[in-house]
Design a protein around this nucleic acid. Structure first.
Lengths: 159, 159
DNA sequence: AGCATAAGTTGACAATGACAACATCACGTT
DNA sequence: AACGTGATGTTGTCATTGTCAACTTATGCT
C-alpha cells in the first residue's frame, strides 16, 4: 500500500520514507488532514444541519472517514490529532448549551454525535438498503433519521 | 496475520487453508460468528436495555465488533452474513412498532440503531474521555446517553 | 485390504513495509 | 566561485505475509 502510493506518484518505493517515518505516520497525517477538513465543514454549519453535514462528509469521503474513525489510526498517537477530533465535539456541546432547552447539554451532544456517527457508519456499511446509493432517497432518509430524535428537555425555568 | 494464527494454534502455516479458502474467508467466518452471538444477546434483551447491551457487546469484544462493522469484511460477500446482520435490526423495528407511540417506527429504529452504534464506535475509539476505561462511570455515561433521546411522537389517535 | 477424503506439511513465489547506503540537487555561507 | 549541508530520491536487501502446489499422513467406509 505504501509502495503502491509511491508507484502512483510515479516515484520509486521508499521515496515516501523521506516524508513520513512509517506507513502508519502517513496514515495518521491523512487522518489529521481529514479531521481538519471535517472540522472546517462542521463549523461552517449551524445547529440542525450539522448532522447532515457530518453524514455527508462520511459518504463523500468514505475512505477518509474510515481512516479517521476506523480504529486503524490510534487517536492517542498524535496529540494534534486528538485535539482536532475533540474540537468539533466541543463545538457541538457549546451549540447545545446555547440552545438552553436541553437538560444536559454534554449528554445531548454525545447522543447527537453518536447518532450521526453511527448513521454514517451504518450507511457506509450498507446496513440500510432503504437508502440506496445515489439519490434523493438517501438524503431524505438521513434527514428523517436525524430529525427523528428529541432531546430530554430542561426543567422549565419559570412557571 | 493468517500465519500468526497458525503459529499460535501450534500448527504450520497453510494449515488454515484446509479450513478456509482465504484469509478474508476466515475473517468473514469470524464476523458471522460474531453476528450470531450478537443477535442472540440482542434478542435476550427487552426494549430500552437493548441499547446498553449493544454497547456492552462492542466494549467487551472490540476486535469482533470492529471486524463485524469495520468495513473490512464486506457485508455483501456472504448472504448469511447480511441476514444475520439485518435480523437484529428487524427485531428493533418490530419493538418500536409494538410500542405504538412513535410516529415512524422504521425511522425511529434506524435512529436508535445509529445512536448505539455510533456510541459504541466512539467509545472504542476513545472519543469520550469522560467515560474512562473500566468503571461504573462508563456504564453511567452509556445509560445517560442512550436515555437522553426521545422519539418523535405519533399523532394522537383520538382526541 | 483397498481407497477416498480430510487435515497437515514443506517448498516456493510475488508483494509488502522497513532499513541502509549511495546519488543528486538546491541552497546559504564564506 | 567553492564548499558543505540538508532535503529528496534511488537501488539493493531483508524478514514477513498471503497464496499456490505438491507431497504426506491419518481416518473411516466398503
Amino acid at each position: 500500500m505504501l509502495r503502491e502510493v509511491a508507484r502512483r506518484a510515479g516515484v520509486s518505493h521508499n521515496a515516501p520514507y523521506r516524508h513520513f517515518p512509517s506507513r502508519d505516520a502517513l496514515l495518521a497525517a491523512l487522518a489529521a488532514e481529514g479531521f481538519a477538513e471535517f472540522g472546517a465543514r462542521m463549523q461552517s454549519q449551524a445547529g440542525a444541519v450539522m448532522g447532515e453535514a457530518y453524514v455527508s462528509f462520511a459518504l463523500e469521503r468514505p475512505q477518509r472517514f474510515r481512516l479517521m474513525f476506523g480504529g486503524t489510526v490510534k487517536l492517542g498517537s498524535d496529540p494534534a490529532l486528538a485535539r482536532a477530533a475533540s474540537g468539533a465535539y466541543e463545538g457541538l456541546v457549546a451549540a447545545f448549551r446555547a440552545r438552553g432547552d436541553v437538560a444536559d447539554p454534554e449528554t445531548a451532544a454525545a447522543a447527537a454525535w453518536s447518532l450521526v456517527h453511527g448513521l454514517s457508519h451504518l450507511l457506509l456499511a450498507g446496513h440500510f438498503p432503504q437508502a440506496t446509493a445515489g439519490g434523493a432517497q438517501r438524503a431524505e432518509f438521513i434527514r428523517k433519521v436525524t430529525g427523528a430524535v428529541r432531546f430530554a428537555a430542561a426543567p422549565q425555568r419559570t412557571a
